[in-house]
Write a protein that binds this DNA or RNA. Structure first.
Length: 135
DNA sequence: ATGCTGACTAACA
DNA sequence: TTGTTAGCCAGCA
């Protein structure tokens, strides 16, 4: 089964990105973690780059780089996010502490064969160990 | 096959 | 703080 899963992985990426609710954002790395094998932060970026017509179906604009930085150029990503209520600081970054997507629900992730995010807690104090990766 | 590139990230200086 | 290095996976010359 390690053959030509790329396309399948890409579809999974789109599914995960589609789970990000309006007004929330995530990062390439987080998406890659949820999708799991065969994907990495960079591959997520490539997958979103080949969206084409599906760009209107997948909320690709809610996927940012590490730290809430927009990695796209010459696009209207920031404008789209602003229309959803996302705020930016003076540096043009999104305060992830407030707008970060907590990831898919554990049940949903398990049903679809995805993984939940490792605990990062928006605050660096409360670590909820309920999301143990049991591998 | 080898090497470089890319909507990335973490570690190190 | 910024800049560089290395790791990562897939596509292409």
């Amino acid at each position: 089964m390690s053959t030509g899963n790329e396309q399948d992985v890409i579809e999974r990426i789109y599914v995960v990105v589609g789970q990000v609710p309006p007004g929330k954002v995530t990062t390439y790395g987080e998406v890659a973690t949820i999708v799991g094998g065969g994907s990495d932060a960079r591959f997520v970026g490539q997958a979103l780059g080949m969206l084409g017509d599906r760009a209107s179906k997948v909320p690709w604009q809610r996927v940012l780089s590490r730290g809430g930085v927009i990695s796209t150029y010459g696009g209207n990503q920031r404008e789209l996010l602003g229309a959803e209520g996302i705020e930016f600081d003076e540096k043009g970054k999104v305060p992830m502490d407030r707008f970060r997507w907590s990831g898919p629900e554990k049940e949903w992730a398990e049903q679809h064969g995805f993984q939940t995010l490792p605990s990062r807690g928006g605050d660096k104090k409360e670590e909820d160990k309920s999301q143990l990766s049991l591998l």
